[in-house]
Design a protein around this nucleic acid. Structure first.
Length: 492
RNA sequence: GGUCUCGUGGCCGAGCGGCUAGGCAGAGGUCUGCAAAACCUUCCACAGCGGUUCGAAUCCGCUCGAGACCUCCA
């Protein structure tokens, strides 16, 4: 198969053919969470998106090194620091305990969404020497200056000498100057758009390290530059993150990389768009927010019922990663049903028997299967791919009802099975939550016994018994489905 | 105020100049002891007003509306 993968590069604002630096290998860096709080559902969308990208690249045969960092220092500043101190005092916790707690919580949610762990998950606090080293190089190259034990990145010098500052976010330095008037604590900086790469710690600051300049801590953007360089090299293929990180985070990251090694860190910048709740940005202050757990339990004023992790994931995949996605109760209900329909079809597909004859539907099915790859190759368009997959779902249902003989050749059926199982399972990472067959032999044996008894009752037209079994199971959230060839069951 | 996105049928959401997206809901049908489920078929659209073009949801302009970013932010 000829796969011509294109990706939308935020840097050039164009779709480009994806060509890795080293053939067959992909280095990908994605900005991970700051672990001072429960993971935000919007975070989950970003990481689910990049998980699919990671999985698809692997599916295409690339050897991928996927880095996603844990920010456990740097962002715990300013008003965040106050909350941390308060929280730490109340719970009698060390900052690292707080970081550990929320890192574990984050991993748990990521696992519930069935995302793969990254190849490397480095922590900012574990890379202080690398960050100090980078600050030294930046100073040596003339892009950094020290004031009172803090070191700032000289954006003006950088912009003048390289012309690179503001390229990603489409900003120019004059505007930055104009808009920075209202900001406080600018007195140490030469230029308002300069940013700290090393901060001298105030005495009450908890997390601090020795450095050539002061006892302090690294600046907000430095960890990503230092860690991506360490594990992926000075230049790598993909850098990802949420749309809201473009400025200042990614802009400053680029400045640091170019300022220390003279080269752009990433060839392709990929940014995911925001997740909205009821058409508005999620915000804790006005109550417009929902956590993954609240979504799974249904304990939220925004939802009428709980939604399973896979239904939520399916909902996310129905939208392109570069579009805003509006989370509403109604939309989730629709997604949940769509997800169930897809899983049902996948189950049917697995049971289809290989036919002896050539098939009338071969050409159509082949072109749809090929279409899935075209969709995914178009900047990882999961919504388009799902559209194509649902066209195949109809075909599968027809094959399942009418038999495969004469409709599809063994070769095409095999290709259909292999591709769909791979795309839905391995690439999308969608698990079948409703499948009754994989719950263990005791349960299966029990259920088939119960359904046999009910079938006997039905054959004798003993409707009260038959209905009692059906209704009793329903109250246990087990749904009995009467079909042409007997009954089956699944969890609701 | 500056920068930038986006407005598609009842809801969500693809589409990037000509060809059915898809999901959910609705309608009709199949199956069925009843019901549910499932399956098949199908209706409904491009915010408004101009312009470019043989042809526009798709390009350009304006109007209205929504949202994001502007050193906490996925």
């Amino acid at each position: 198969m000829n796969h011509k993968l294109t990706v939308y590069n935020s840097m050039t604002r164009e779709k480009e053919i994806f060509t890795p630096i080293h053939e067959g290998f992909v280095g990908m860096y994605v900005c991970g969470p700051t672990v001072y709080n429960d993971v935000h559902l919007g975070n989950c969308r970003t990481f689910v998106s990049f998980d699919v990208i990671f999985r698809y690249l692997k599916h295409l045969g690339f050897k991928v090194r996927y880095l996603r960092n844990i920010t456990d220092v740097g962002h715990l500043l300013d008003d965040g620091e106050d909350r941390m101190l308060k929280g730490a005092k109340a719970d009698q916790m060390e900052p690292m305990e707080v970081a550990q707690k929320y890192t574990l919580g984050f991993h748990q949610i990521m696992q519930i969404f069935n995302t793969l762990p990254p190849s490397i998950e480095p922590r900012a606090t574990g890379h202080i020497p690398e960050q100090i080293e980078m600050v030294e190089t930046i100073i040596k190259n003339g892009y950094g200056y020290e004031v009172n034990g803090s070191v700032y990145f000289d954006t003006l010098a950088f912009a003048e000498r390289t012309g690179e500052y503001g390229k990603l976010s489409g900003r120019v330095i004059d505007e930055l100057m104009a808009e920075s008037r209202t900001l406080k604590n600018q007195d140490e900086k030469k230029h308002p758009s300069d940013f700290a790469i090393w901060m001298k710690a105030a005495p009450e600051h908890i997390m601090k390290w020795n450095s050539p300049w002061s006892v302090g801590f690294p600046g907000w953007h430095l960890e990503c530059s230092a860690m991506s360089t360490k594990y992926l090299g000075q230049q790598f293929d993909i850098h990802g993150g949420g749309n809201d990180l473009k400025f200042p985070h990614h802009e400053n990251e680029i400045a640091q990389n170019v300022g220390s090694c003279g080269c752009q860190p990433a060839r392709y910048w990929l940014h995911t768009n925001m997740l909205l709740l009821n058409s508005k940005k999620m915000s804790k202050s006005d109550g417009n927010t929902i956590s993954p757990t609240e979504l799974f339990t249904g304990e939220s004023v925004h939802m009428t019922k709980p939604y399973s992790p896979m239904a939520v994931k399916f909902f996310m995949l129905q939208c392109h990663y570069r579009s805003t996605l509006d989370l509403t109760d109604e939309a989730l209900q629709a997604a949940e049903k769509g997800y169930k329909r897809l899983m049902e079809a996948l189950r049917k597909l697995k049971k289809l028997e290989a036919p002896q004859t050539a098939g009338a539907m071969d050409a159509e099915i082949n072109s749809l299967v090929e279409g899935i790859y075209e969709d995914m190759n178009d900047d990882f368009s999961t919504p388009k791919a799902l559209g194509t997959i649902f066209e195949l779902v109809t075909k599968i249902n027809i094959l399942s009802d009418n038999g495969t003989e004469g409709q599809i050749s063994a070769e095409v059926l095999n290709r259909l099975k292999t591709t769909l199982i791979a795309i839905i399972g391995d690439v999308f990472g969608l698990l079948d939550e409703g499948e009754g067959d994989n719950q263990g032999t005791a349960l299966n044996g029990l259920m088939s016994l119960i359904l046999d008894l009910r079938q006997a009752a039905r054959t004798n037209k003993d409707w009260p018994t038959s209905d009692k079994i059906r209704d009793g199971l329903a109250s246990l959230k087990i749904q009995v489905k009467d079909g042409k060839d007997g009954s089956s069951w699944s969890f609701q």
